[in-house]
Write a protein that binds this DNA or RNA. Structure first.
Lengths: 153, 153
DNA sequence: TTCATATTGACACTATACATGTCAACTTGA
DNA sequence: TCAAGTTGACATGTATAGTGTCAATATGAA
């Protein structure tokens, strides 16, 4: 019963670390973006297109779990940057695919590898297993909190 | 060289989970606050006063790492709720201490214990050690990202 | 004791990151 | 072919926080 309380307390603190972690991470990402002409949200679009290939705006919105209308704005900005271009979508003529240009692909790859290098540096003295399990724990907790927050059955 | 990349990748994903985790957590906290008349930010004020005792607004701002002017607004709201009251501050006459009222103390204790119960439930099948280490990893990474983001030397 | 400097509370304004609502144009599928 | 759905565009709303400024006051060093 002692360790049960400790466990819940640790979990509670872990959950509440999400905000400071996010803020620190965003500040770093932003710093890393300096000079590229990208904003954090444009980076998010590039990353999704890099991970999952060409997609329509509504598909990107679904993946990011934010509203279509806002993603539309993000994507329009990104299109204007020249790192992304439209391609015909045979399944829907009004909703073209967005795809990375060569420039965009090279940029996002460079950004991500820079970020990974930073991660390698920051995590140098951390245990690989611990990190892998931390990821599992965080994913599990996030999932369950989501179900808790909006029970859809 | 293989595991080094895996490690960085896991860390990268862990860091990027911070936003979904935070959003899920906030939704849950908000749901748990329903009926209390508290908002998430009022809860934050109560929690700090509960953890660290009576403090002035600028002290709370320093602890939350958000701007004094915004914390002032949060605290004014919280004061209006009756869960917090002003007490004379011998060190500074214009800046009274804020302290929990009995009602406020009982409310925040009730809220936190409810949250801890939820954590215990969500973490039931997670390993205690893993959670403790996940917390350590997240704290370490947050610290280092902060130093990275704003190198002050 | 006095006075320059700092702190505090209050208020106004701005910015960001979304949500919401609406609409017309178009597409799809029955 | 036509009703129903999808998409892009735009306008507006809201929550969270940052910034700037000011007057009142407090503090601490001379």
């Amino acid at each position: 019963m002692y360790s049960v309380n400790m466990k819940a307390e640790h979990l509670h603190r872990l959950v509440w670390m999400s905000r400071p972690l996010m803020q620190a991470a965003e500040a770093c990402v932003e710093a890393g973006l300096a000079g590229t002409g990208l904003t954090v949200r444009m980076r998010a679009v590039l990353e999704i297109l890099h991970q999952s290939g060409e997609q329509t705006v509504p598909e990107i919105a679904a993946r990011l779990e934010i509203k279509r209308q806002y993603v539309q704005v993000m994507c329009n900005e990104t299109l204007a940057s020249g790192f992304v271009e439209q391609r015909p979508n045979p399944r829907h003529k009004r909703s073209p695919f967005l795809a990375l240009t060569d420039q965009g692909r090279s940029l996002i790859e460079q950004i991500i590898s820079k970020e990974l290098a930073l991660m390698a540096e920051l995590g140098a003295d951390l245990d690989s297993q611990d990190i892998a399990r931390a990821l599992d724990v965080v994913c599990a907790v996030t999932d369950r909190l989501r179900k808790q927050g909006s029970p859809e059955e």
